[in-house]
């Protein structure tokens, strides 16, 4: 069965490589480097810090968008072209199919992260880039899982993309939103700020703590250590199985 899972993973990766994903990565790298050079011409001091922060944000954001698009469009095509039904008609369980897809997109995520992080080795110390890259890989694996859940449950490209981006933005901003919620002024109607704050806290329980992942300060101020990876790895280890279980749950309920 492992061979079948690997075959699905390999063809998923191959499909993405043949759809010129790597050209897109190369273009992104070129644009990011040009942007960094442009910033270096503008900044009077802290030029390296400006370039590193810009590259870190742009490359991470690009990787997230690229991966979500690849997963959502690839899976939506799989559903509309009835390829999924064809695969499931073989002696293959739904869980194995999902495992193969997740593995394939996971390989793609690692490849994209590794390529997009290339320029950072010239701007920040190796240890910091290594920690940042490992953290980015975990973040992209979470994005892959999230995109799989969204596309399998919603089945529609636009809706699935919107759901992925909404969840990602919410997960990234949740810590700041919670702080804002706590700072809400208590008016005469004291229940509403407290209720809003509690609601934000409740939503935060269900979202991955993405604000620990691939922090730009690590690249700019070299503040990352081995301890920085602990929450990242723990969160990944908890949330990826959760996403996989949710996607599998939905796939099992789907009637073909």
């Amino acid at each position: 069965m492992a061979e079948k899972i690997h075959a699905i993973a390999w063809y998923t990766l191959l499909e993405n490589l043949r759809s010129r994903t790597l050209y897109g990565v190369a273009l992104l790298l070129l644009l990011a480097l040009c942007g960094a050079q442009f910033l270096s011409a503008l900044a009077i001091i802290e030029t390296r810090e400006f370039q590193t922060a810009f590259l870190g944000v742009l490359l991470r954001g690009s990787a997230v968008v690229l991966l979500s698009l690849a997963v959502v469009t690839g899976m939506a095509r799989e559903l509309t072209e009835k390829r999924l039904e064809l695969v499931l008609a073989c002696a293959l369980g739904r869980g194995h199919y999902l495992a193969g897809k997740f593995l394939g997109y996971g390989w793609l995520a690692l490849l994209v992260a590794g390529l997009l992080a290339l320029p950072l080795w010239f701007y920040a110390p190796s240890l910091q880039v290594s920690i940042w890259l490992l953290s980015l890989c975990c973040e992209l694996l979470l994005v892959v899982g999230l995109a799989l859940v969204c596309v399998l449950s919603l089945g529609h490209t636009v809706m699935a993309m919107l759901a992925v981006f909404a969840c990602y933005v919410l997960a990234r901003s949740m810590h700041a939103l919670q702080l804002l919620g706590q700072a809400l002024p208590a008016d005469g109607d004291a229940a509403s700020p407290a209720l809003l704050s509690s609601l934000l806290d409740l939503i935060a329980f269900f979202l991955p703590g993405l604000d620990y992942f691939a922090v730009t300060d690590w690249l700019v101020y070299h503040t990352a250590g081995a301890a920085s990876l602990t929450p990242v790895l723990l969160q990944t280890l908890i949330y990826i199985p959760l996403l996989a279980a949710a996607a599998l749950f939905d796939l099992h309920r789907r009637n073909f």
Binding site: F50, V57, A176
Partner: peptide, 20 residues
Amino acid sequence: AGLRAVDLGEHTALSKLLML
């Protein structure tokens, strides 16, 4: 605090872009 809520955790990068 308001900007922190919308910068997706990228306080450092936003600060630098705002300065430029």
